[in-house]
Amino acid sequence: MSIRVLVVDDSSFFRRRLTEILAADPELLVIGTANNGKEAVEKAAELKPDVITMDVEMPVMDGIQAVREILKTQRVPILMFSSLTHAGAKATLDALDAGAVDFLPKKFEDIARDKGEAIEVLRQRVKAVARRRLFVRPATTATPPPVRPAPSALARTPLARAELLRSTERTEPVEAVSSANFRPSGKQYKLVAIGTSTGGPVALQTIITALPANFPLPIVLVQHMPAAFTGAFASRLNSLAKIEVKEAADGDILRPGVAYLAPGGKQMLVEGSDSQAKLRIKDDDSPRITFKPSVDITFGTAAKVFSDKVLAIVLTGMGSDGRDGCRLLKQFGSKIWSQDEASCVVYGMPQAVTSAGLADAEVNLADVASRLVAEVGHG
């Protein structure tokens, strides 16, 4: 059964090009197009697509408002397309706050090393976010469905979205997922390391904004994100969080209560000793490294500096970046948490870690912050 896509963009050229790319995949079917946000809202209600691709800047109604309006009446994953500018970054982050699940740059060459790879990344991203909707769609039974929060709650805040996922989508219990059942291990830590990709901006905002101002450890954050976006994203997190959040700079000394976001297009390495650790930001043109920044690289270098004193968390994302870094952390004796499937936009990265037997716990997104505070508070 094909994944049904609604393409929304005010550029007729981009609509046509995107339609051609998606239609060439037998698993994808473009069922309609719209040239502004108002038309997108109408077409979404009429066609009930499995996924929507949405431009940010459009006449009549922009993509941000369109996302809000669509999510008031239906739960459909929306993938934003954005220009790689500071203004484009801010608008895209606003769209994610409104309820969009992920974004891609409008220039396809910015998402991969060559045109063919970029096209494949685009198709896979559309499929991944669409499958999220297929996963959460309730089964048809004779029993009336449970009462759920209004769909607009999904668009209000990342935390509301996570709570909604936790309360309505988990079909089978996962051991020790609930914060109420959580018992801290008593292990000592000196660093928290978090890696994520697709769906990560919302997940990170959910966690970071829930941490107290006196959080006792430094945090390194690796989010697959273009260079034009990481500065704006770090600034947004810093404005919302009680702890300090900054885009990491070369030579930064790791300080308690500060979260360091890896710059897009570069690699973030941890160097020094566990009592005086610092960050090294480097360009990396190695063809073997797909992601810049890479979770594996940051996690791997953290393992060498902090040994068994890292609590690493792998959140929602496509692919398996983070698995090899977690394997090295595990060999040194550090702890690994992975986000559970029910609360992921895309279960790829956490699944890779869990399937490799590296995860000490699977945690619902809505529970990560409270468990994190409880765990490191007993260090």
Rank of each mutant, 00 (worst) to 15 (best):
I289C: 06
A352P: 12
T290Q: 09
S320D: 13
K304W: 02
P350W: 04
S338A: 13
F306I: 08
V353P: 01
S275F: 12
K335R: 08
R327C: 05
S307D: 13
G357D: 02
K330Q: 05
T316A: 10
V295S: 05
K278Y: 15
G322H: 07
T290K: 04
F299Y: 09
G272E: 15
R288T: 13
S320N: 06
F299R: 00
A342Y: 10
L328T: 09
S273I: 04
D321W: 09
T354C: 05
S343V: 12
G272T: 14
D285H: 13
S294Y: 02
R323K: 15
S294F: 07
K278Q: 12
R323N: 06
A312H: 05
F332E: 08
T316F: 05
D285V: 12
D308Q: 12
M349N: 00
F299A: 01
A352I: 11
R288S: 14
S334D: 06
V295Q: 01
Y347T: 02
S338V: 11
M318Y: 10
A303P: 03
R327F: 06
D324V: 07
L329K: 01
T298E: 10
A302S: 15
R280S: 15
D321M: 11
L328N: 02
Q339W: 10
D274V: 05
A352L: 13
P287K: 04
R280A: 15
Q351S: 13
P350L: 10
T301L: 12
D308K: 06
P287V: 10
Q276T: 06
T354H: 08
A359F: 00
T298P: 03
F291V: 10
S343W: 14
F332I: 00
L311N: 00
R280W: 14
R288H: 12
L279E: 08
D360H: 02
V345L: 06
L311G: 02
K282I: 15
W337A: 04
S338H: 00
A352D: 14
R323L: 14
G317D: 03
S286P: 12
F299S: 02
L358D: 04
S275Y: 13
L315V: 06
L358H: 01
D340E: 13
F299Q: 00
D283L: 14
V295K: 02
C326L: 03
G333M: 10
P350D: 07
A312G: 15
G322T: 09
I289S: 09
T301M: 11
D360L: 03
K330T: 04
S355R: 10
S334C: 07
K309V: 08
C326T: 05
K282D: 14
E271D: 09
K292P: 04
E271Y: 02
K304T: 12
K330Y: 03
I289Q: 07
A342S: 14
G333K: 04
L315M: 10
A342D: 15
D283S: 15
T298S: 12
P350E: 11
V310W: 01
A356K: 04
K278H: 15
F299H: 01
V310N: 02
D284V: 11
A302R: 07
S286F: 14
I297G: 07
I336G: 00
C344P: 01
R327W: 07
V353D: 04
Q339D: 07
